[in-house]
Design a protein around this nucleic acid. Structure first.
Lengths: 230, 230
DNA sequence: GATGCCGAGTGACATAAGTCATTGTCGTAT
DNA sequence: ATACGACAATGACTTATGTCACTCGGCATC
């Protein structure tokens, strides 16, 4: 089972560059934990004790308004890490995190990571890449929330999901929507009903063809154009 | 004048840990440039050649919608850096940047920074702190745009400005508003007129007292409570 | 097969926020 | 003094988005 941990760590962006001997040591210190769908890993503002490497499943980091609406900041999947920030700046957890599906993670104490950073300068460099990517996405999200309408945000979301998920066919790109309208709403900054309407509008415009939770994008470029333009 | 450059670099979070001899070398390679208010340093999507250290003034990074509305992602002042991301992930400039006021910067080629990172592992660690702080703020902005109303966003903005700018008096915190309503709108994700109305509403609620561009916050805690709550 | 639950779809309605147009004020340049 | 430009304030109007309420269909459980 430590074998599994080593393999999991090796698949992560942060630790992939380490030699096996170092990984073994790290794996021994890492604690495996599992979370059911929607179980909370940590809450924004809590004292942060370490970071999480996702072995399997997916985790969303989000904020909640007083009336209970969620806004997802980012979603991370197997191989990614969450709660790296406190390791480097000693702050609290920046967002609440919950399992987006049944999930297995490795918890690593932040002191262990820091020690490793000093001995292995590749880790800070890898971490910089991770944070840089996340910052780019976060800026995209800000732009979308402030300057684009819900329909465009949905279109962009679908294009991204298609890249991650979809299979190319000769009549376009097919994909399964794994999330509910509720979940999509929390991602793009809206509510269930409005997402539902945005779906029907995209369908009327011929930009997507919906069949239950199975969906076809006949012309990805057109959908992207809709997302960017107007 | 290289003297000035060295002093400027030493004031930056990224390079403050370097010894004088290294700073001198870096200063020789750094190119000083000045920008007038609203002059553009670079445009989002451009090939990025290096990063900028702000010597004097302030720079805003922002996105623009097709109809011309701006959304500011972050503002950096003397001692801070902008466009670090491309140094670490080799991408393009993530946002457009313009001088928020008359500004002097040092431009440093990204290859020079990378070389320095390998010799001086404190730099990546300092960069991680910088990016972590920015990521926290960016997440705050996402939350604000998605889950808070304009009045609350303005309140939060004023509290932040008061911390940066204000002077404590016995009847509250005084501050000068250095930005126009237009600029504030671009920061908090709204438009001129709505900001103007939000100001009058905050005033009616007794949370602020406005006198031209001079403004008093009688009870900072109350203003913060308004920003967070509801 | 009946029951209950969850999620999607949709009509009716409320409202925050954006748009447009006008006015007033202040400071600078002529 | 006058004219001009920049910016703030404000009324009137439009609209995207959110809220509420209800229906329907699929699926699992009993």
């Amino acid at each position: 089972m430590t074998m599994d941990k080593i393999a999991a760590l090796k698949r992560s962006k942060l630790f992939e560059s380490l030699e096996d001997s170092t990984l073994r040591m790290l794996a021994q210190r890492a604690v495996e934990r599992t979370f059911r769908k929607d179980e909370v890993l940590f809450v924004a503002g809590e004292e942060a004790r370490g970071l999480y490497v996702i072995v399997e499943g997916a985790v969303r980091a989000y904020r909640v308004s007083l009336d209970g609406r969620e806004q997802v900041i980012h979603v991370e999947r197997a191989g990614a890490t969450i709660a790296e920030l406190p390791v480097f700046d000693d702050g609290t957890y920046p967002s609440t995190a919950a399992a987006e599906e049944d999930t297995t993670v490795l918890f690593i104490d932040k002191q262990d990571v820091r020690r490793l950073c000093l001995e292995h300068p590749q880790i800070p460099l890898a971490a910089l890449k991770v944070l840089a990517a996340r910052l780019r996405r976060c800026a995209e999200l800000v732009e979308a929330l402030s300057l684009r309408e819900v329909g465009q945000r949905l279109a962009r979301f679908l294009v991204a999901e298609a890249h991650r998920n979809g299979t190319r066919a000769d009549n376009g790109t097919w994909m399964n929507l794994t999330q509910t309208n509720q979940q999509i709403a929390a991602r793009i900054g809206s509510v269930r009903e409005v997402v539902s309407r945005a779906f029907t509008r995209l369908q009327h415009e011929g930009l997507i063809v919906v069949d239950g939770r199975h969906l076809l994008i006949p012309d990805e470029a057109a959908l992207e154009a809709f997302a960017d333009q107007r």
